[in-house]
C-alpha cells in the first residue's frame, strides 16, 4: 500500500491530454514589493507590510524574526492565501500612474507554480502544498477522535480517497509526529496531554504531505523538554516529509541552531535575510531593534571586549569548536 497517496498524482494539465511540459518544478517562494494595509481608509489604518521583497528557496529551513506587530504573521498568512493580494480579489482596479511619474509597482507573490496575484489561482490546491501550523495549534482540534481530526484536512483536499488510503496517510502522519497511532487513534484529542495535543494538531496539518510547512511559534508555551522535542520533530519533518520549513520564532538560540537563513521584520519592513552566521554579526543592529541575540553571540561580544575574537557560526557546537580551536592554535 502506498502510504503517501497524495504523492505523484498527475498534474491537471497532463490529465487533460496536453503534452506534459518537462520542467523541474521547485516550490520557491518569491515575494516582490508585498504591501498590506489593515483597515485601509479608516482612522485605524495600519500598514502591516511595507514593500517586502523576499525569496525563500526550496529545501530551506527558514526563520522569520520580529516583534509582535512587525508584519511577520501578515507575511506568513500570504503564503497560503489566507490573506490575498489586492490584485487577486474581486473588483480590483489597477492603480493608475500619476502624470509624470512611473506606474506604481504592483506587489507580486509566487509560490512554486502558483501566482498569488492572480484571481484565477486555485487557492485550495495551493493550501494543500503549503501547510500552516498556527500558534497554539491545539486550539484547532475539534473532532471526536484523533483519527477524525487528523483525517479532516486530507478529506477536505482529496474528495475520493479510499478508506485504506486515508488510514495509511493518517497513520504515517501520526507516527512521524511521535504519537503511538494504535494508542491514540480512537481517543478524543481533548484527553491527550498538552504536548501530545500539539503533536496531534501538527499531524492534522502535515497529513497531506505539504511541500512547504509554515509554523508560527511551534514551541510557544511548552516546557524546555517539550521545546526540544518539537525542534527535533521539525528536523525529522524537514528530512523525511516536507521540502521546505518556514518557522516564525522569538527564540534566537533556536534560530541560530536550526535555520539555513533568517529574515528580520520590523514595522512592516524587511530588515534583512541572512544565514545565522552572518545575521548575528549584526548583533548591535538587532539589539537596537529591541530583538534578542543568541547566547553564543552574547559570549562572542563579551570575549571581543576582552580582546579575544572567536569567529563562529553561532551554534553552541560551533562556538565550542571555535574556542577549543583557538586554544589549540595557541599551543
Amino acid at each position: 500500500m502506498n502510504p503517501f497517496p497524495l504523492r505523484g498524482l498527475p498534474l491537471k494539465g497532463a490529465a487533460r491530454g496536453r503534452p506534459p511540459i518537462i520542467t523541474i518544478k521547485t516550490m520557491q517562494i518569491t515575494a516582490e514589493h508585498l504591501t498590506y494595509v489593515y483597515n485601509p481608509g479608516s482612522p485605524f489604518a495600519v500598514k502591516a507590510l511595507d514593500d517586502v521583497s523576499l525569496t525563500i528557496e526550496e529545501g530551506e529551513f527558514f526563520g522569520i524574526i520580529g516583534h509582535t506587530g512587525s508584519g511577520k504573521s501578515t507575511f506568513v498568512k500570504h503564503l497560503n492565501g489566507l490573506i490575498r493580494l489586492p490584485s487577486s480579489q474581486k473588483h480590483y482596479k489597477k492603480p493608475k500612474a500619476k502624470k509624470g511619474q512611473p506606474a506604481p509597482v504592483e506587489p507580486s507573490l509566487k509560490v512554486g507554480e502558483f501566482d498569488l496575484a492572480d484571481r484565477k489561482t486555485d487557492f485550495r490546491a495551493l493550501r494543500k502544498k503549503v501547510g500552516m501550523v498556527f500558534q497554539y495549534p491545539e486550539a484547532q482540534l475539534f473532532a471526536e477522535t484523533v483519527f477524525d481530526d487528523v483525517a479532516f484536512g486530507l478529506k477536505n483536499f482529496e474528495k475520493d480517497l479510499k478508506a485504506e488510503e486515508i488510514e495509511a496517510a493518517v497513520k504515517a502522519a501520526t507516527e512521524i509526529v511521535g504519537l503511538d497511532y494504535a494508542a491514540v487513534k480512537d481517543v478524543s484529542p481533548f484527553d491527550l496531554s498538552g504536548g501530545q495535543r500539539r503533536r496531534a494538531a501538527i499531524a492534522g496539518v502535515i497529513v497531506t504531505k505539504p511541500e512547504i510547512l509554515v509554523l508560527d511559534e511551534p514551541a510557544a508555551g511548552l516546557d524546555p523538554l517539550g521545546k526540544k522535542e518539537i525542534m527535533e520533530l521539525l528536523h525529522r519533518l524537514h528530512r523525511d516529509w516536507c521540502r521546505t520549513i518556514v518557522i516564525v520564532s522569538h527564540d534566537m538560540d533556536e534560530i541560530a541552531e536550526n535555520c539555513t537563513r533568517a529574515a528580520v521584520f520590523s514595522e512592516g519592513k524587511l530588515v534583512c535575510a541572512l544565514p545565522p552566521k552572518e545575521l548575528f554579526l549584526k548583533s548591535e543592529e538587532l539589539l537596537s531593534l529591541g530583538l534578542d541575540i543568541p547566547l553564543t553571540a552574547k559570549l562572542c561580544a563579551a570575549l571581543a571586549k576582552r580582546g579575544v575574537s572567536v569567529g563562529c557560526d553561532f551554534t553552541v557546537d560551533g562556538f565550542v569548536r571555535a574556542v577549543l580551536g583557538a586554544k589549540g592554535e595557541k599551543r
Binding site: L295, L299, A302, L303, K305, R306, V308, A326
Partner: peptide, 12 residues
C-alpha cells in the same frame, strides 16, 4: 556570561 567570558579569555 561575564564570568565565563573572563575565564575563557584568561585560559586562551
Amino acid at each position: 556570561i561575564d564570568l565565563l567570558a573572563d575565564s575563557i579569555a584568561r585560559l586562551l
